[in-house]
Design a protein around this nucleic acid. Structure first.
Lengths: 105, 105
DNA sequence: CTTTTATGATACTAAATAGTATCACGTCAA
DNA sequence: TTGACGTGATACTATTTAGTATCATAAAAG
């Protein structure tokens, strides 16, 4: 059960946010993720570990490959925390939900 | 106009998130914020600068005091980014909005 | 005017972080 | 079996970050 801190920390790096966007479309092995970045596979692996610690991704092994997938519930701790600002961004929240539904059409 | 990265970074530190929670109730000077932490005023000042860079707070000067206030729109870049995960957390968003309205009663 | 108070700013230290290089290990294929 | 491939893990370096200490400046109070 990841702490809220580990989730916020995982989201704080642009490379890791890019990885999450990639995983939104399809699951990827470490090597496949690394192809999209100008850094070594080992560095990408570290980012994936941080994302896993933050509960934002899950991993499963298939033979010698490790497949990374987005964890739908991973964002929950962040959302729970943001709730503290309800009196300020409640209206915005409603607007966002409308935009999401519009995008899906 | 703060970049999304500076906002995510500002949120990634537990001390800074605590400061935001404090400012949710009332505006505070640097010294008043510092009273709540076991660290020097200079350290708190640095955190406030990061929060300001991230657009999460605004500051105004009153005499020799500098008053820090929560910026309602500061969280927008983060919310915009989270929109990318719409297909996963749309249902959760609706649930959260319900909880917020319930809490307000 | 003198003193106190709140802040701004700089220099410095320690720890965390992002990255590389390297090697070991298990799996798959010829 | 032999080797290539994908990964795990460690050691190392450079940068960023969180914090302190210190001093300068400006405003409020006497």
């Amino acid at each position: 059960m990841p702490q809220v801190q580990s989730t916020f920390r995982a989201l704080a790096d642009p490379t890791r946010r890019d990885i999450l966007v990639m995983l939104r479309d399809c699951d990827l092995t470490i090597a496949e993720v690394a192809e999209n970045f100008d850094m070594t596979r080992a560095a990408v692996k570290k980012h994936l570990t941080v994302l896993s610690d933050g509960g934002l991704i899950t991993t499963r092994t298939s033979g010698r490959e490790r497949i990374n997938a987005l964890n739908p519930q991973g964002i929950d701790p962040v959302m729970d925390w943001l709730k503290y600002f309800d009196i300020f961004w409640d209206d915005r929240l409603a607007t966002l939900k409308t935009e999401i539904e519009k995008d899906r059409k």
